[in-house]
Amino acid sequence: MQSYLEKLFLVEGIAFAIIGVFFFIFPLQSIISLSALIALMFMVIGVMTIVRSKGREGRFFYIFNGLINILFGLTLWLYPISTLDVLVLVYGIWVLVRGIYLTFLSIRNGYFGLNIYTAANVIFVIFGALVVFQPFKALISAPYFIGTALIITALGEIYLGIKLKNTYR
């Protein structure tokens, strides 16, 4: 069972990294012409997150996070340009809430410390706050904010996957 979970962390991390790199390589095009691919990947990641919630502590957060990923993907798929300003704000709120929750979860589970996972959670809180409190500036730099947050998410997920792998050997 643990092997299954660690692989999901790694696959989810790789998927987040791929999406994040797209935002840097094709900043405007990723928002417009690659939105279908990005939306599909968010929906797949959402399903994986929900599947990963089985039998875990904090299951509600994983299910909620998975549903948010699926809804974000569906909205981006159906309304890629007309909802950009709303998506940026919703994404900012999601990153802020995710960062705060994961920070508390890492403190409770003993992951908090000088590591990539803690750094990622702190950066989530900062990015989320910047997007929520400066939405116009965030809209202009949205591809870079989103890309950076996704790459940081990828590093955190891969870190947890490797930590789980090493813990259950």
Rank of each mutant, 00 (worst) to 15 (best):
F61T: 00
N65Y: 15
W77E: 04
A17Y: 09
F104N: 05
R169A: 15
I18M: 13
I81M: 11
A36R: 06
A36F: 10
I45C: 12
S141F: 14
Y79F: 04
S33A: 14
K163I: 08
F61A: 03
L71M: 10
S106V: 01
I70E: 10
G99R: 01
I63H: 07
A15E: 05
E57Y: 10
Y91Q: 09
V21Q: 11
I18T: 09
Y168S: 15
A138T: 12
G110D: 05
K165T: 13
K54Y: 13
T103A: 03
L40K: 11
V47C: 12
Y91E: 11
L40A: 11
I50T: 10
T75R: 07
W94M: 03
E157P: 12
G58D: 09
R59F: 08
G58T: 05
A39E: 09
L130K: 12
I146T: 01
S106W: 03
Q2F: 15
F145A: 05
F112G: 01
V132I: 11
M48P: 01
M43F: 03
G99W: 02
G147M: 08
F24E: 05
K163G: 10
S106C: 00
G147A: 05
I18L: 11
T83D: 13
E6I: 09
T148E: 10
T167H: 14
Q29A: 13
P80E: 03
Y91V: 07
N121F: 05
E6A: 08
